[in-house]
Protein backbone atom coordinates (compact mmCIF):
# COMPACT_ATOMS: atom_id res chain seq x y z
CA UNK A 1 0.00 0.00 0.00
CA UNK A 2 1.40 3.40 -0.89
CA UNK A 3 1.80 6.08 1.77
CA UNK A 4 -0.90 8.34 0.40
CA UNK A 5 -3.42 5.53 0.06
CA UNK A 6 -2.62 4.58 3.64
CA UNK A 7 -3.25 8.14 4.77
CA UNK A 8 -6.52 8.26 2.93
CA UNK A 9 -7.60 5.02 4.58
CA UNK A 10 -6.58 6.20 8.06
CA UNK A 11 -9.93 7.65 9.17
CA UNK A 12 -11.70 4.46 8.18
CA UNK A 13 -9.15 2.32 10.03
CA UNK A 14 -9.65 4.43 13.14
CA UNK A 15 -13.42 4.16 12.81
CA UNK A 16 -13.56 0.48 11.95
CA UNK A 17 -13.55 -1.11 15.44
CA UNK A 18 -16.25 1.26 16.71
CA UNK A 19 -18.33 0.74 13.59
CA UNK A 20 -18.11 -3.05 13.87
CA UNK A 21 -19.08 -3.10 17.56
CA UNK A 22 -21.93 -0.65 17.09
CA UNK A 23 -23.19 -2.52 14.06
CA UNK A 24 -23.30 -5.99 15.63
CA UNK A 25 -24.25 -5.10 19.20
CA UNK A 26 -26.46 -2.04 18.85
CA UNK A 27 -27.81 -1.45 15.36
CA UNK A 28 -28.38 -5.11 14.55
CA UNK A 29 -30.34 -5.69 17.80
CA UNK A 30 -32.46 -2.60 17.17
CA UNK A 31 -33.24 -3.77 13.65
CA UNK A 32 -33.96 -7.24 15.02
CA UNK A 33 -36.36 -5.71 17.48
CA UNK A 34 -38.26 -3.86 14.78
CA UNK A 35 -38.62 -7.17 12.94
CA UNK A 36 -39.58 -9.03 16.13
CA UNK A 37 -42.39 -6.60 16.78
CA UNK A 38 -44.22 -8.13 13.82
CA UNK A 39 -43.93 -11.67 15.21
CA UNK A 40 -45.74 -13.83 17.70
CA UNK A 41 -42.64 -15.00 19.49
CA UNK A 42 -41.95 -16.66 22.84
CA UNK A 43 -38.54 -17.11 24.47
CA UNK A 44 -38.26 -20.83 23.80
CA UNK A 45 -38.43 -20.34 20.04
CA UNK A 46 -35.75 -19.29 17.62
CA UNK A 47 -36.80 -16.13 15.84
CA UNK A 48 -37.15 -18.05 12.54
CA UNK A 49 -39.79 -20.32 14.04
CA UNK A 50 -41.96 -17.45 15.23
CA UNK A 51 -45.13 -16.77 13.32
CA UNK A 52 -45.44 -13.53 11.34
CA UNK A 53 -48.49 -11.63 12.52
CA UNK A 54 -48.08 -8.26 10.80
CA UNK A 55 -49.30 -5.33 12.81
CA UNK A 56 -51.25 -7.47 15.28
CA UNK A 57 -48.92 -6.64 18.18
CA UNK A 58 -49.41 -2.93 17.62
CA UNK A 59 -53.16 -3.35 17.24
CA UNK A 60 -53.22 -5.16 20.57
CA UNK A 61 -51.24 -2.35 22.17
CA UNK A 62 -53.87 0.15 21.09
CA UNK A 63 -56.61 -1.72 22.88
CA UNK A 64 -54.44 -2.84 25.80
CA UNK A 65 -55.62 -0.86 28.82
CA UNK A 66 -52.59 -1.88 30.88
CA UNK A 67 -50.20 -0.60 28.24
CA UNK A 68 -52.11 2.67 28.03
CA UNK A 69 -51.97 2.91 31.81
CA UNK A 70 -48.21 2.44 31.86
CA UNK A 71 -47.78 5.00 29.08
CA UNK A 72 -49.74 7.50 31.18
CA UNK A 73 -47.66 6.67 34.25
CA UNK A 74 -44.46 7.14 32.26
CA UNK A 75 -45.53 10.53 30.91
CA UNK A 76 -46.77 11.69 34.32
CA UNK A 77 -43.55 10.51 35.96
CA UNK A 78 -41.31 12.23 33.40
CA UNK A 79 -43.31 15.46 33.52
CA UNK A 80 -43.36 15.60 37.33
CA UNK A 81 -39.70 14.82 37.93
CA UNK A 82 -38.41 17.12 35.20
CA UNK A 83 -40.48 20.11 36.28
CA UNK A 84 -39.78 19.68 40.01
CA UNK A 85 -36.08 19.15 39.39
CA UNK A 86 -35.88 22.16 37.09
CA UNK A 87 -37.46 24.51 39.63
CA UNK A 88 -35.39 23.17 42.53
CA UNK A 89 -32.13 22.88 40.61
CA UNK A 90 -32.26 26.32 38.98
CA UNK A 91 -33.46 27.90 42.23
CA UNK A 92 -30.61 26.41 44.21
CA UNK A 93 -28.11 27.43 41.57
CA UNK A 94 -29.34 31.04 41.83
CA UNK A 95 -29.03 30.92 45.63
CA UNK A 96 -25.62 29.32 45.69
CA UNK A 97 -24.12 31.32 42.82
CA UNK A 98 -21.49 33.19 44.81
CA UNK A 99 -17.87 32.75 45.54
CA UNK A 100 -17.78 30.75 48.73
CA UNK A 101 -15.07 28.62 50.23
CA UNK A 102 -15.67 24.92 49.83
CA UNK A 103 -17.89 25.17 46.74
CA UNK A 104 -16.02 22.30 45.07
CA UNK A 105 -16.55 20.11 48.14
CA UNK A 106 -20.23 20.94 48.00
CA UNK A 107 -20.50 20.03 44.34
CA UNK A 108 -18.68 16.76 44.99
CA UNK A 109 -21.18 15.81 47.69
CA UNK A 110 -24.08 16.75 45.45
CA UNK A 111 -23.06 14.46 42.60
CA UNK A 112 -22.74 11.41 44.86
CA UNK A 113 -26.43 10.40 44.47
CA UNK A 114 -26.07 10.32 40.68
CA UNK A 115 -23.02 8.10 40.70
CA UNK A 116 -24.40 5.40 42.98
CA UNK A 117 -26.11 2.42 41.35
CA UNK A 118 -29.87 2.95 40.81
CA UNK A 119 -30.38 -0.43 42.46
CA UNK A 120 -28.70 0.87 45.60
CA UNK A 121 -30.68 4.13 45.47
CA UNK A 122 -33.84 2.04 45.37
CA UNK A 123 -32.56 0.00 48.29
CA UNK A 124 -31.86 3.04 50.45
CA UNK A 125 -35.24 4.57 49.79
CA UNK A 126 -37.09 1.32 50.26
CA UNK A 127 -35.53 1.08 53.69
CA UNK A 128 -36.41 4.70 54.53
CA UNK A 129 -40.00 4.16 53.32
CA UNK A 130 -40.31 0.96 55.38
CA UNK A 131 -43.76 1.00 57.10
CA UNK A 132 -42.44 0.40 60.61
CA UNK A 133 -38.65 0.78 60.80
CA UNK A 134 -38.21 3.42 58.07
CA UNK A 135 -37.07 6.84 59.18
CA UNK A 136 -40.10 8.68 57.75
CA UNK A 137 -42.73 6.72 59.62
CA UNK A 138 -40.58 6.61 62.77
CA UNK A 139 -40.33 10.40 62.70
CA UNK A 140 -44.05 10.79 62.04
CA UNK A 141 -44.84 8.49 64.93
CA UNK A 142 -42.40 10.26 67.21
CA UNK A 143 -44.10 13.61 66.66
CA UNK A 144 -47.50 12.01 67.07
CA UNK A 145 -48.74 11.83 63.47
CA UNK A 146 -50.28 8.97 61.54
CA UNK A 147 -47.78 6.83 59.60
CA UNK A 148 -48.02 7.15 55.81
CA UNK A 149 -48.40 4.08 53.55
CA UNK A 150 -45.46 5.19 51.38
CA UNK A 151 -45.20 2.24 49.07
CA UNK A 152 -48.46 0.36 49.64
CA UNK A 153 -50.95 3.02 48.55
CA UNK A 154 -51.17 3.72 44.79
CA UNK A 155 -51.14 7.51 45.14
CA UNK A 156 -48.37 7.62 47.72
CA UNK A 157 -46.28 5.08 45.81
CA UNK A 158 -46.17 7.41 42.81
CA UNK A 159 -45.18 10.32 45.06
CA UNK A 160 -42.52 8.15 46.68
CA UNK A 161 -40.82 7.18 43.42
CA UNK A 162 -40.93 10.82 42.30
CA UNK A 163 -39.27 11.92 45.56
CA UNK A 164 -36.51 9.34 45.14
CA UNK A 165 -35.84 10.48 41.58
CA UNK A 166 -35.85 14.14 42.60
CA UNK A 167 -33.31 13.34 45.31
CA UNK A 168 -31.08 11.56 42.85
CA UNK A 169 -31.24 13.92 39.88
CA UNK A 170 -31.86 17.49 41.07
CA UNK A 171 -28.06 17.89 41.52
CA UNK A 172 -27.64 17.25 37.78
CA UNK A 173 -29.74 20.28 36.90
CA UNK A 174 -28.17 22.26 39.73
CA UNK A 175 -24.63 21.66 38.49
CA UNK A 176 -25.43 22.40 34.87
CA UNK A 177 -27.30 25.61 35.66
CA UNK A 178 -24.56 26.71 38.05
CA UNK A 179 -22.03 26.23 35.26
CA UNK A 180 -24.27 28.21 32.93
CA UNK A 181 -24.71 31.00 35.48
CA UNK A 182 -21.01 31.31 36.12
CA UNK A 183 -20.22 31.56 32.44
CA UNK A 184 -22.57 34.53 31.93
CA UNK A 185 -20.66 37.70 30.94
CA UNK A 186 -20.05 39.78 34.07
CA UNK A 187 -20.35 43.00 32.04
CA UNK A 188 -24.05 42.27 31.44
CA UNK A 189 -24.66 41.79 35.18
CA UNK A 190 -22.75 45.00 35.80
CA UNK A 191 -24.92 46.87 33.29
CA UNK A 192 -28.11 45.55 34.89
CA UNK A 193 -26.91 46.73 38.28
CA UNK A 194 -25.96 50.16 36.98
CA UNK A 195 -29.42 50.48 35.46
CA UNK A 196 -30.86 49.91 38.92
CA UNK A 197 -32.26 46.41 38.50
CA UNK A 198 -33.05 44.61 41.74
CA UNK A 199 -31.68 41.14 42.43
CA UNK A 200 -35.01 39.61 41.51
CA UNK A 201 -35.30 41.63 38.29
CA UNK A 202 -31.78 40.63 37.29
CA UNK A 203 -32.68 36.97 37.71
CA UNK A 204 -35.97 37.22 35.87
CA UNK A 205 -35.05 39.46 32.94
CA UNK A 206 -31.32 38.96 32.50
CA UNK A 207 -30.04 35.68 33.91
CA UNK A 208 -32.91 33.35 33.01
CA UNK A 209 -33.19 34.43 29.35
CA UNK A 210 -29.42 34.13 28.92
CA UNK A 211 -29.42 30.66 30.47
CA UNK A 212 -32.38 29.47 28.43
CA UNK A 213 -30.47 27.52 25.74
CA UNK A 214 -28.60 25.49 28.35
CA UNK A 215 -31.74 24.99 30.42
CA UNK A 216 -33.73 23.65 27.50
CA UNK A 217 -31.03 21.17 26.54
CA UNK A 218 -30.67 20.12 30.18
CA UNK A 219 -34.40 19.61 30.52
CA UNK A 220 -34.49 17.50 27.37
CA UNK A 221 -31.55 15.38 28.55
CA UNK A 222 -33.30 14.80 31.87
CA UNK A 223 -36.53 13.99 30.05
CA UNK A 224 -34.79 11.35 27.93
CA UNK A 225 -33.27 9.85 31.07
CA UNK A 226 -36.60 9.92 32.91
CA UNK A 227 -38.05 7.65 30.23
CA UNK A 228 -35.24 5.19 30.86
CA UNK A 229 -35.63 4.98 34.66
CA UNK A 230 -36.21 1.42 35.67
CA UNK A 231 -34.10 0.02 38.48
CA UNK A 232 -35.10 2.47 41.22
CA UNK A 233 -38.78 1.78 40.64
CA UNK A 234 -38.17 -1.94 40.24
CA UNK A 235 -36.60 -2.11 43.69
CA UNK A 236 -39.02 0.29 45.36
CA UNK A 237 -42.40 -0.95 44.15
CA UNK A 238 -41.87 -3.31 41.20
CA UNK A 239 -44.55 -1.29 39.42
CA UNK A 240 -47.18 -1.70 42.07
CA UNK A 241 -49.42 -1.40 43.91
CA UNK A 242 -51.62 -2.30 40.99
CA UNK A 243 -50.12 -0.53 38.01
CA UNK A 244 -49.65 2.79 39.77
CA UNK A 245 -45.89 3.02 39.23
CA UNK A 246 -45.44 0.68 36.29
CA UNK A 247 -43.48 2.78 33.83
CA UNK A 248 -42.98 1.64 30.25
CA UNK A 249 -39.48 0.24 30.71
CA UNK A 250 -40.72 -1.95 33.54
CA UNK A 251 -43.73 -3.06 31.51
CA UNK A 252 -41.42 -4.11 28.67
CA UNK A 253 -39.22 -6.14 30.95
CA UNK A 254 -42.21 -7.83 32.57
CA UNK A 255 -43.91 -8.59 29.25
CA UNK A 256 -40.70 -10.24 28.11
CA UNK A 257 -39.76 -12.18 31.21
CA UNK A 258 -43.03 -12.86 33.05
CA UNK A 259 -45.60 -13.03 30.27
CA UNK A 260 -43.05 -14.44 27.80
CA UNK A 261 -44.43 -12.44 24.87
CA UNK A 262 -41.35 -11.19 23.12
CA UNK A 263 -43.20 -9.83 20.07
CA UNK A 264 -45.47 -7.75 22.24
CA UNK A 265 -42.48 -6.51 24.30
CA UNK A 266 -40.68 -5.59 21.07
CA UNK A 267 -43.67 -3.56 19.89
CA UNK A 268 -43.65 -1.68 23.21
CA UNK A 269 -39.91 -1.11 22.94
CA UNK A 270 -40.54 0.38 19.52
CA UNK A 271 -43.06 2.83 20.91
CA UNK A 272 -40.62 3.86 23.65
CA UNK A 273 -37.84 4.20 21.10
CA UNK A 274 -39.99 6.43 18.87
CA UNK A 275 -40.79 8.66 21.85
CA UNK A 276 -37.12 9.00 22.73
CA UNK A 277 -36.15 9.58 19.13
CA UNK A 278 -38.65 12.41 18.87
CA UNK A 279 -37.16 14.01 21.99
CA UNK A 280 -33.61 13.60 20.71
CA UNK A 281 -34.57 15.09 17.36
CA UNK A 282 -36.09 18.11 19.11
CA UNK A 283 -32.90 18.54 21.10
CA UNK A 284 -30.72 18.23 18.01
CA UNK A 285 -32.74 20.70 15.97
CA UNK A 286 -32.85 23.13 18.88
CA UNK A 287 -29.11 23.08 19.46
CA UNK A 288 -28.43 23.52 15.72
CA UNK A 289 -30.85 26.43 15.75
CA UNK A 290 -29.19 28.23 18.66
CA UNK A 291 -25.77 27.55 17.17
CA UNK A 292 -26.86 29.19 13.91
CA UNK A 293 -28.38 32.15 15.68
CA UNK A 294 -25.32 32.82 17.81
CA UNK A 295 -23.10 32.54 14.74
CA UNK A 296 -25.25 35.12 12.96
CA UNK A 297 -25.02 37.45 15.94
CA UNK A 298 -21.23 37.21 15.98
CA UNK A 299 -20.95 37.87 12.24
Amino acid sequence: MSASAFNRATPYIFLLPAAVVLAIALMYPVGYMVWASFLNWNPSQRIGEAEFVGLANYARLLSDMQFRESLTVTLAFAASVVSIELVLGVGLAMLLDRKIRGMSVLRTLFILPMMIAPIVVGLMWRYMYHPTVGIFNRTLKAIGLEPVPWLSDPGWAFVSVVIADVWQWTPFIFILSLAALQSLPSSTMEAARVDGATRFQTILYVKLPLMMPVLIVTALLRMIDAFKVLEVILVLTNGGPGLSTEILALRISRTASEFRELGQAAAMSNVLLLLLMALTAVMFVYSKFTEMRSRRQVA
Binding site: L26, Y28, P29, V30, Y32, M33, A36, I224, F227, K228, L230, L248, A249, L250, I252, S253, A256, L262, A265, A266, S269, L272, L273, L276, M277, L279, T280
Partner: peptide
Protein backbone atom coordinates in the same frame (compact mmCIF):
# COMPACT_ATOMS: atom_id res chain seq x y z
CA UNK B 1 -30.51 7.49 23.71
CA UNK B 2 -31.29 3.80 23.30
CA UNK B 3 -32.33 2.56 26.75
CA UNK B 4 -31.33 -0.87 28.07
CA UNK B 5 -35.01 -1.82 28.26
CA UNK B 6 -35.27 -1.51 24.47
CA UNK B 7 -32.21 -3.70 24.00
CA UNK B 8 -33.55 -6.35 26.34
CA UNK B 9 -35.61 -8.41 23.90
CA UNK B 10 -33.34 -8.37 20.85
Amino acid sequence: MIPPAVLLVP
